[in-house]
Design a protein around this nucleic acid. Sequence first.
DNA 1: TCTCGAACGAGAGCACCGCTCTCGTCGAAG
DNA 2: CTTCGACGAGAGCGGTGCTCTCGTTCGAGA
Lengths: 225, 225
Amino acid sequence: MTSARERVRSELTAEITAAARRQLADVGAAGLSLRAVAREVGMVSSAVYRYFPSRDDLLTRLIIDGYDDLGAAAEAADDPAEAPAGRWSAVCRAVRAWALEHPHEYALLYGSPVPGYRAPQDTVPAASRVGGVLGRILGDAARGGALPEAAGTRDPSLISDAAVEVLGGDHPSLDETVRVRALLAWSSLYGTISFELFGHFVGSVEDGDRYFDLAMDDLARLIGL
Amino acid sequence: MTSARERVRSELTAEITAAARRQLADVGAAGLSLRAVAREVGMVSSAVYRYFPSRDDLLTRLIIDGYDDLGAAAEAADDPAEAPAGRWSAVCRAVRAWALEHPHEYALLYGSPVPGYRAPQDTVPAASRVGGVLGRILGDAARGGALPEAAGTRDPSLISDAAVEVLGGDHPSLDETVRVRALLAWSSLYGTISFELFGHFVGSVEDGDRYFDLAMDDLARLIGL
DNA sequence: TCTCGAACGAGAGCACCGCTCTCGTCGAAG
DNA sequence: CTTCGACGAGAGCGGTGCTCTCGTTCGAGA
């Protein structure tokens, strides 16, 4: 039921986002210009507004695509047959590799929010894919008996039920203490990558690859994997 | 030996940076407009270029000031008479409090780099003040015997000599393993704050204050404090 | 004390930006 | 076949960073 008009519209939309993606990789989100994107696809700037109501909506599209691309990379790097600690390291390495390959996209996703704070609702499903992978590793480790028994405390006012579900759900090995550590490890992964990418490790860390592996091993131990 | 002209120049420079600081707090770094700053101080835009050669130089000034302000807050929060773990928590809390009070400045410091990657040289001394405080805590803990004996490994290609010096220098309780953990804890502090400030914890962490305290306690234990 | 150059503020202007509006055109649904 | 909506082009508005020029004014050296 797709008319020719709808097809050419979706093709043009894809072409615009592709051009925007290229420009994002070149000059970063701050330098992304809707007019330049229009020039690249051979349009006049006002015509682009038929497809994206504003520059920020175009950026939101790129954010969602970026989350999806990163999430796919993380999912592809996770082999459920491996041991939990190995899975954790592999996924962390994949996230870092993606960030190093797409620094401007990474900055768009995990750096300073760009506009008047983007609408989170649309980006949530794509944004939670990496967290989902990491949570699955934790849950599998718990169900596989790789985690020590926990004290079993549960404090509903600290971590949301949705996050508890993502972090492996209910299990004797999972309590608020290890869930806090899992969230901490999750954000620390991005803290490490951001520091490397944004230059805060310049002058301190000499061998980024080895430092990252050691740091992620420490985080795995922190969680108990 | 300061002529009247020099004095009025430094006063005007301060007035411009103050106006820019206010605008940064209002609309963020991306929305900071040199022309608006000029309007606020009652100048025409071209006159501001007598004091700052470009908008990015003005931003660099704000970055340095921000690092200094944050560093001062961290130093003020550190009481060397306290136990290492308590000092660590206090400094972490101070950094977070500063970030929550100055979200746009924090984003400017630790979010995506703004221009064509700022000149790091000028910002380095101010930027390393918080790291200096945390490193001092680690060194004091080692010299105070609060840390377990370490294996004593030293790998010069992993962490720079300058960073080793900041992280307490040479001591039997300090080896590459705990130094990696200290750097990890350092970046994790900012990873945690950034996730909270940039909205990545929305839907997961319900009680930000308590989560932060628990997470920082975990990091202190990771280092061995 | 006078002079001359440097510092300064103001203004015009350039190229670019996001975004809006209007106006022909063309395709597809009725 | 008609008609209406989607579409691209173009002009234009207000804003931006930045440059250049032009009088003015201040202050250091003669």
